[in-house]
């Protein structure tokens, strides 16, 4: 088991390296001089100063050398400085925005998993009943509605028309931190983030449970006279949950995509909002750092899922 975990982590690190290479070379294709990523536009510099800087940064070297230099800096925690935002170090900006993003994504995913499992069970048990049909229709709409559209509609209805939710942000600015303040700002974006993913998990849970319900041991249990309710809750759901666990990893990964839109509609101070502004301003060091952080997050989520799955399902060969 330990060996398995170590190997998964090793593979994850390799993947992250490959990703950093991909993003590094991609961003070098971007128009403009990479040197400008290292210069504060507000500080005056002569041509000679710039040439000297170019040499000291190794920007006159061939690309693979530049990558190795950059990687060294990155590993030691120096991701460069943002081109805008007062030239703050990228690592600081990332640290400040990871927390809010995690909060939004984890609470959204948690809600999605809870709702999804419940809806999936109801759908499978009352197969083709009115509840199933309505849930199926809702989940189809959920899958087909992009996060920014549900976010807009949610903002329009709950904040613009009903005034139930604040217009955006994470808490009252400058006010001492209160849990209720945070929760009231979190509720709407987290629910909207959950909306799209609930559908996916519900579909998966429903079909997984249906499959289990057709298996022999369930039929046997039923034949032995175990009540239907008990069979479903005790035997079927537990078995059906197994494949759903694999989905949790990809849910956390998918949450990143949805969170970008939701953060930018709700002005939530997370990674997504930061990435979008960075792309608008072509702030390459920040784009690079943000991409790596998101990649690490997704890889980590996948490793955790695999490990959890290996723990839960003894049939998986480990090692």
């Amino acid at each position: 088991m330990t060996l398995y975990v170590v190997r998964r982590i090793g593979a994850g690190i390799l993947l992250l390296l490959a990703l950093s290479m991909l993003v590094f070379f991609l961003l070098r294709l971007a128009p403009g001089d990479p040197l400008s990523s290292y210069i504060d536009p507000m500080v005056s510099m002569t041509e000679q100063d710039m040439e000297r800087l170019r040499q000291s940064l190794g920007l006159d070297q061939p690309l693979p050398f530049q990558y190795i230099y950059w990687l060294g800096e990155t590993i030691t925690g120096d991701l460069g400085r943002s081109l805008q935002r007062n030239g703050q170090p990228v690592s600081e900006l990332l640290m400040a925005s990871i927390g809010p993003s995690m909060l939004l994504m984890l609470s959204g995913s948690l809600l999605a998993i809870l709702f999804g499992i419940v809806i999936g069970i109801v759908g499978a048990v009352r197969r083709d009943g009115p509840a199933d049909v309505i849930l199926a229709a809702l989940s189809s709409v959920g899958v087909s509605s992009p996060a920014f559209l549900t976010a807009l509609v949610g903002l329009y209805v709950f904040s613009g028309v009903l005034h139930w939710a604040p217009a955006g942000g994470m808490q009252e600015p400058g006010m001492p931190f209160t849990l209720s303040g945070l929760l009231s700002h979190l509720a709407l974006p987290a629910l909207i983030l959950a909306f799209g993913q609930t559908a996916l998990i519900a579909r998966y849970m429903r079909s997984s449970l249906l499959e289990v319900l057709h298996q022999d041991f369930i039929r046997t249990a039923r034949a032995k006279g175990v009540p239907r309710r008990k069979v479903i809750l005790k035997h079927a759901v537990r078995n059906a949950l197994l494949p759903v666990v694999t989905l949790i990893g990809s849910t956390l990964g998918l949450a990143v995509g949805g969170a970008i839109f939701i953060e930018s509609v709700f002005n939530w101070p997370g990674m997504g909002l930061m990435m979008v502004t960075a792309v608008e301003a072509r702030d390459y060091p920040l784009i690079m750092g943000g991409t790596l952080a998101v990649g690490a997050w997704v890889i980590l989520a996948n490793i955790l899922t695999d490990v959890a799955y290996a723990f839960i399902d003894p049939r998986i060969k480990v090692g």
Binding site: L15, L16, L19, V23, L26, L27, L29, A30, P31, G253, L254, V256, G257, I260, F261, M275, V276, A278, V279, R282, Y284, I287, G290, T291, V294, G295, V298, I299
Partner: peptide
């Protein structure tokens, strides 16, 4: 590995 939207953002920032 990357969520599509992130890669989309990276690519879009390059191509315009």
């Amino acid at each position: 590995t990357l969520p599509p939207v992130i890669l989309l953002l990276v690519l879009a920032s390059i191509t315009g």
